[in-house]
Each structure stands twice: as C-alpha cells, then as structure tokens.
Computed example of a mutant assay.
Amino acid sequence: MIDDLVDRILAGDDDAAWELEELVEDDPDALRPYLSRLLDADDVYLPEALFRDAGEDVQREAAARVDAGSPNVWLVTMLTATHGPVVEAAFRRWRRQPPPGIDADTLANVLPRYGWDFETDGRAREIRGATAYALVPEDGPASAEEECPWCGGPLWVLLDVDTADPRVASTLAHTGWQGRLRIVACFLCCIYPRVSFAEVTPDGGATWSPRTARPGYLDGKKLEKAAPPPVRLTVGERRPDRYLGGPTLGGEPHWVQDPDYPDCPACGKVMNYVGGVVGTVIREYVDCSFYLFLHAPCGLAAVVTQTT
C-alpha cells in the first residue's frame, strides 16, 4: 500500500500525499524506508509531518540538495519537522549564509513559522516538548472569574496544571516554567483572531491580555456571550508517541492546517508549544482545535485556533 502511494506521489498525485499521511499517522516507522525516495517529489506538496522521524541519512541528503542549489523551499520545511545535530547544523549554516536559490528573508519567515528559533550564540532553542501526556476530559467547572472584554462572557480555562506534578514538570521542561500554569481565553472570541494572548504568573494567575488584536472585521459588531463548556481537562497517561493527536499536554502540535507558531508579542521570540485541545472532545460540533503556547520569560501564554 505504501509503495503504491509513493509511486503515485512521484507521478504527481497530490491526493496520494494526504492518503499517505493518514495511513502512517499511527506508525511513522513504516515510512522510514521510503523517505529518501520522497525527496524526489518536487511537484507535490508533502506534509512535513511525514518526515518527523527522518534519520540523519535523509536529513543529510535533503540538506545536500539545498546546498547544491535546489530552490525548493519544501526541502527546508521538511527538515523543520526533524530533530538532531545534522538539521540544526544546516539551519545554523543557512542563517549565516543562505543557500543558493533561497534568500535570507524566506528563511527568516519559514523557520519561526515551523517552530524553529535560535539563541544569540546560534544554538537551536527547543520549542516543542520531548514527552507528551493525554489530557483527559471530565465534568467540572472550566470558567474563570474574569470576563471577556469583547463580549462580556466568562473566560474559559483551557489548561490548569502545576509543575509540582512530575508529569507536568517533564512536559514543560523545555519552557523553563516553574509553578502552576493556567491558560485562559474566551471560548467564543478566541475563534476570531488568529491568536489570543493571556498574561500568566507561576502562582496560577491568568488574565486576558490586551495584546490580543481585535480583527478589523469585528469593528462595530456586538458579540454574543458564550459560556465555556462544562468540561475540564486533567493530566492522564503518558502517550507512546509525542506526535499523536487528541487533547495532549506537551509533545508536538498535530496541526489541522499549516503550522502556525506564534511570536511572543512582548519580545518577538517564537513561543513554546505546551499542548493542544480538540474542540469535539470538550463540546460536540465544535469544529476547532486549540493550540496552547507559552513564553515564560515574558509571562505570556497564547491560544492559536484552527478550524478543521
């Protein structure tokens, strides 16, 4: 089956790429023997998640093609899904000296968008978690005391965890956060902007941030209040794969659209991914996924909403 799909992809069949992603979603190792062949798929958009377990041999081959002058930015976005010293060295090199056919502005836009950031000394900064735990829905209050300044409805507590729990500490280790983390947003209004922000403190403080930009198409419109779903999420068992979808604390975002890592509005650095919430899990017919981010040094959290 995989052989047939790869052949169709190399023949230019776009639909085969999405079929392949669905087929290997729960068993990415099955795709490993085919990744080198897929590098030849110049005319088909391939979801970068297909290469999430690419080994150093495939990373080297893709980087060599970019160094040789391939103008295919897709090879760069594919490498953003991988990890390790080979891809980090390639990105550091290209940031200093862009490869032939790909300009510096393109790299500066692509790398942060796909979740890569670097320290001042050139070291890659880990944006995503190395471990992941399920977030388990249970009946209970999920409303904050504060009201949304746009519609007046109560804010929604998407996440309430504490690093005193070893499971939480391990999943948030890459963020540098210590203490209780509550992330709030308006259940209705967070669907309208690309990203909404909250100000957070290690004692569990969480408040809607005025850094959230109101979209222009909402000017003059009065929004109706929407009560948050009466479902709260608690930390469950460890997931066997940090890439798996569903409500998750830690791991890697399971995007339903293109990757969309937000920049911290205070300092401009790419924010750390801390978890995701699937709308249909907390309320039927909520056709959205909510991606949660944190930039601990600035005390800001973010909720990115994508519709399926």
Rank of each mutant, 00 (worst) to 15 (best):
P166I: 07
P166G: 12
R167L: 05
R167M: 08
A169N: 07
S170N: 11
T171P: 05
L172F: 06
A173Q: 14
A173P: 00
A173H: 09
H174V: 08
T175N: 08
G176S: 08
G176A: 12
G176V: 08
W177L: 03
W177S: 03
Q178L: 10
R180I: 02
L181D: 03
L181S: 03
L181A: 07
C186P: 00
F187T: 00
F187W: 15
F187E: 00
F187P: 04
L188G: 13
L188M: 07
C189Y: 04
P193H: 07
R194I: 09
R194M: 09
R194E: 14
V195S: 10
F197H: 04
A198F: 00
T201R: 14
T201M: 07
D203G: 14
D203H: 05
G204M: 09
G205T: 03
G205A: 10
A206P: 00
A206H: 01
T207S: 13
T207V: 15
T207A: 15
P210H: 07
A213V: 14
R214I: 12
P215T: 11
P215G: 11
G216Q: 13
Y217L: 10
L218S: 09
G220Y: 09
K221F: 14
L223K: 09
L223W: 05
E224C: 04
A226T: 11
A227S: 15
A227L: 08
A227N: 09
